[in-house]
């Protein structure tokens, strides 16, 4: 489904930072891949490359066979198939919850008003906020906002969902409600790439765990392998620091 071949990315801010160094990987349809690693390891850059929010300097990324780094590719079409959830929610503050979820359906998918509304209500019910449809985002808690953000991304009926540290900005008691929604999605067979520090989620839901450090994939494998007997010292060190 997603084929990543030898991507590299260097930032110059103000000195050179090699965020990604020759990274390759493949994500199969229906797979849940969790990317972990220390901060500055390039995992956020990696996931942001998958929907062209960052553009790698080198390499290729194929989504369902389409090279998204080819200038001729209609990137907006690709992005409708790749939903993204951000660390800071990024809900549209001037639009109600319902409008947040219907806007892109209407503008991008060109759905009729009623169809967009119905789809939005189904999704809001799924994430458990149907009774807040008409309030504005600043009246919601962080956990509720992030669930709306998930509904907003799902409204485009994407084939893949990207999560960039979805629970890092949340108060501890709200992390669970967001993770529950994500678990449900995983069970329903959604293809997911998740950057997170929630090891419990990785252990329980992931099909595969990728550990990144210094812009490269150090180790990958099943959660079983990863948490019980990792091969690399760097992985062991990281796990010992966070578990």
């Amino acid at each position: 489904m997603i084929d990543i071949r030898n991507i590299s990315k260097t930032f110059i801010v103000p000195h050179e930072v090699r965020a990604l160094v020759n990274v390759s990987n493949t994500v199969e349809a229906g797979e849940v891949v969790v990317v972990i690693g220390p901060s500055g390891s390039g995992k956020s850059t990696f996931i942001r490359c998958l929907n062209h929010l960052e553009v790698p300097d080198e390499g290729h990324i194929y989504i369902e066979g389409v090279d998204i780094l080819d200038p001729k590719t209609d990137i907006n079409m690709i992005r409708t198939e790749v939903g993204m959830v951000f660390q800071s929610f990024n809900l549209f503050p001037h639009k109600s919850v319902l409008e947040n979820v219907t806007l892109a359906q209407r503008v991008v998918r060109k759905r009729a008003k009623d169809a967009a509304h119905d789809r939005a209500m189904v999704l809001l019910e799924k994430v458990g906020i149907q009774d807040k449809a008409n309030v504005y985002p600043d009246q919601l808690s962080g956990g509720q906002q992030q669930r709306v953000a998930i509904a907003r991304a799902l409204a485009m009926d994407p084939k893949v969902m990207l999560f960039d540290e979805p629970t890092s900005a949340l108060d501890p008691e709200m992390i669970g409600e967001v993770l529950d929604v994500m678990k449900t999605m995983a069970k329903e067979g959604m293809t997911m790439v998740v950057v997170t520090h929630e090891m419990g989620f990785a252990r329980e839901v992931a099909d595969r765990v990728i550990f990144m450090d210094h812009g490269a994939i150090v180790e990958e494998g099943t959660p079983e392998h990863f948490f019980k007997n990792p091969n690399h010292d760097r992985t062991r060190l990281f796990l010992s620091q966070i578990l």
């Binding site: 929907n51 929010l53 907006n76 079409m77 409708t80 892109a104 953000a149 907003r152 485009m156």
Partner: peptide, 10 residues
């Protein structure tokens, strides 16, 4: 805000 909108395909 821009990133969220663009990531939805706008």
């Amino acid at each position: 805000q821009t990133e969220a909108a663009r990531s939805l395909g706008m």
